[in-house]
């Protein structure tokens, strides 16, 4: 009976994701194209930052999704640990490279933006530093998945790492804040422009964020489907060897 349950859930997931995936992908492409086109071609320059504000349409959404991807991995890891739901563990695995890529995009665009604004590619600004640390956590998580052979053991170990890593990532965030204030007196450079951003920049930014969210969902669905198929493939090959 238990094998029925195990089999039924991935199967239902495959059916659902199969029908949803084309729509999500199409919508993601549409939102990304509209949002980035709107942002790149149709918005004015900022009076202070010139044309570099256009980087915001890449930087903010990717940074947002870099964190949200980790949170999603945390939730799916918890679901795996509590409910032993295989799709959940595989979804966490599928999300990690996507989150890592978004982190790289956020870091790269941040550095490119920092060059003209701060006069240097890299500042040990608390936010940038936290993202670098987040990227290290992604690397460790992915490496652990790759290193452990047995899929269930790997799922368990990476889930535990994800939980512990989340706590430490949060602690690092505050530690870094403390550390940089300790080094530089007064105002630190901040990327926090969301609060006082004008509508001209705000609406294309929203579309672009929606695009990144949908892109994330589409990629995670696609990659989870691959992981489920790979799992079934392994099981079938193992069964063939047994026979």
């Amino acid at each position: 009976m238990s094998s029925m349950w195990e089999y039924a859930n991935p199967k239902r997931f495959m059916q659902l994701s199969g029908t949803v995936l084309p729509w999500v992908s199409g919508l993601a492409a549409l939102c990304l194209i509209v949002g980035l086109y709107w942002g790149f071609f149709l918005t004015p320059d900022d009076f202070r930052q010139g044309s570099t504000v256009k980087i915001i349409y890449l930087h903010v959404p990717s940074a947002l999704m870099a964190i949200n991807a980790w949170i999603m991995m945390l939730v799916t890891s918890l679901v795996w640990l509590i409910r032993r739901h295989h799709v959940s563990a595989l979804a966490a695995r599928a999300a990690a490279p996507v989150g890592a890529t978004f982190t790289v995009i956020a870091l790269a665009t941040g550095a490119i933006w920092g060059q003209p604004m701060w006069g240097t590619w890299w500042v040990w600004d608390p936010r940038l530093t936290s993202f670098l640390i987040l990227f290290l956590f992604y690397l460790g998580y992915i490496a652990l998945w790759e290193a452990v052979e047995d899929p269930d053991t790997a799922a368990d170990l990476t889930s535990v790492l994800c939980l512990v890593g989340s706590v430490f990532a949060l602690m690092s965030r505050y530690a870094v804040l403390f550390w940089n204030q300790g080094l530089h007196q007064g105002a630190t450079l901040s990327l926090d422009k969301e609060e006082n951003i004008s509508d001209v920049f705000y609406f294309p930014l929203l579309v672009s964020i929606a695009g990144f969210v949908l892109l994330f969902v589409a990629l995670v669905l696609l990659r989870t489907r691959t992981e489920i198929r790979a799992r079934r493939l392994r099981a079938l090959i193992a069964r063939e060897r047994m026979a």
Binding site: S51, L58, T109, L215
Partner: peptide, 24 residues
Amino acid sequence: PDLGKYATEVLSAYVVSLALIVVL
């Protein structure tokens, strides 16, 4: 659009990001 003196920065940010997304 006229990107002014920051053309290299803006364009490279877009090229790098889109390339990463496409590769992924």
